[in-house]
Every structure is written in C-alpha cells, then in structure tokens.
Lab assay of single mutants.
Amino acid sequence: QRITLKDYAMRFGQTKTAKDLGVYQSAINKAIHAGRKIFLTINADGSVYAEEVKDGEVKPFPS
C-alpha cells in the first residue's frame, strides 16, 4: 500500500511515523508543513519504506 507522509501521520500519529522511519518527530512535522512530496510504502510485514519525489527524481527518505 502506498500513502502520503501526511496521510500516514494523520492515521498513525507523528510519533509513530517518526519511529517507523527512524527520524525525530520534529522532522516529520517540518516535512509535512513544508509540503514535501514524500510517499510511504507499507509492506505486507508491516515495515515501512519512504521515498521523496523532488525535481523529478525519486530518493529514499530520510536520505
């Protein structure tokens, strides 16, 4: 399943989102408010992988 960072954070909370991605909650808040195009893939085992689309390139998040 693929979902935006904002939607994932709204569904699970910023604290869990940060923990799942290995970053601080403040980084999640800042990324959402900056309007960054970050998409999360939720794997069947429950693990989460995030990618950011920037300038036409897709890069892992966090980099």
Rank of each mutant, 00 (worst) to 15 (best):
A50G: 13
I32D: 01
L40K: 00
I3V: 12
H33V: 14
T4G: 10
L21S: 02
A50F: 03
T15N: 12
K6Y: 12
V23N: 02
A50L: 03
D20I: 09
A31S: 05
F61V: 02
K37V: 11
F12M: 07
Y24P: 15
H33P: 02
I32H: 01
G56A: 07
G22W: 04
L5N: 00
K37G: 07
K19Q: 14
A34H: 11
F12G: 01
T17C: 07
I38A: 00
N43W: 10
A44Q: 11
I42M: 09
Y49F: 13
S47V: 08
R11G: 05
Y24L: 14
G22C: 08
A44M: 11
L21Q: 00
G56K: 08
V53T: 08
E52F: 03
Q14E: 15
R36Q: 07
A27P: 02
S63I: 09
T17G: 01
Y24N: 15
K37Q: 13
A27R: 06
K59Y: 15
K30R: 14
F61Y: 13
N29I: 14
G56N: 10
N43M: 12
I42T: 06
Q14W: 11
T41W: 12
K6F: 12
K6P: 07
D55E: 09
D7L: 05
F61Q: 02
V53I: 14
D45F: 05
Y8M: 01
S63N: 14
P60W: 05
Q25S: 10
K19V: 10
V23I: 12
K59D: 05
P60I: 07
G22E: 04
K16S: 05
N29K: 12
I32N: 02
A31F: 09
L5W: 00
R36P: 02
K19G: 07
K6W: 08
S26D: 11
T41L: 08
S47Q: 08
E52W: 04
Y24T: 15
K6T: 09
A50Y: 02
Y49W: 14
L40W: 00
R11N: 10
K37E: 10
D55Y: 08
R11P: 00
K54P: 02
I42P: 04
I3N: 03
T4K: 08
D45S: 06
F39S: 04
K59M: 14
M10P: 01
A9D: 03
A34I: 09
K59R: 13
E51S: 06
K30S: 14
I3K: 03
Y24K: 15
R2V: 13
T41P: 00
N29E: 15
S63R: 12
Q1G: 10
T17S: 04
Q14I: 15
I42H: 04
M10L: 13
A44V: 12
A44G: 11
L5R: 00
I3R: 04
G35N: 13
T15C: 13
N43F: 11
H33T: 14
A9I: 15
D7R: 04
S63Q: 12
D45K: 04
V53D: 12
G13V: 01
D7T: 04
M10D: 15
H33I: 15
I42E: 04
Y49R: 11
E51T: 08
S47H: 08
G22H: 09
S63A: 12
D55V: 06
F39Q: 04
I42F: 08
V23Q: 03
I38F: 01
D45W: 05
A34R: 09
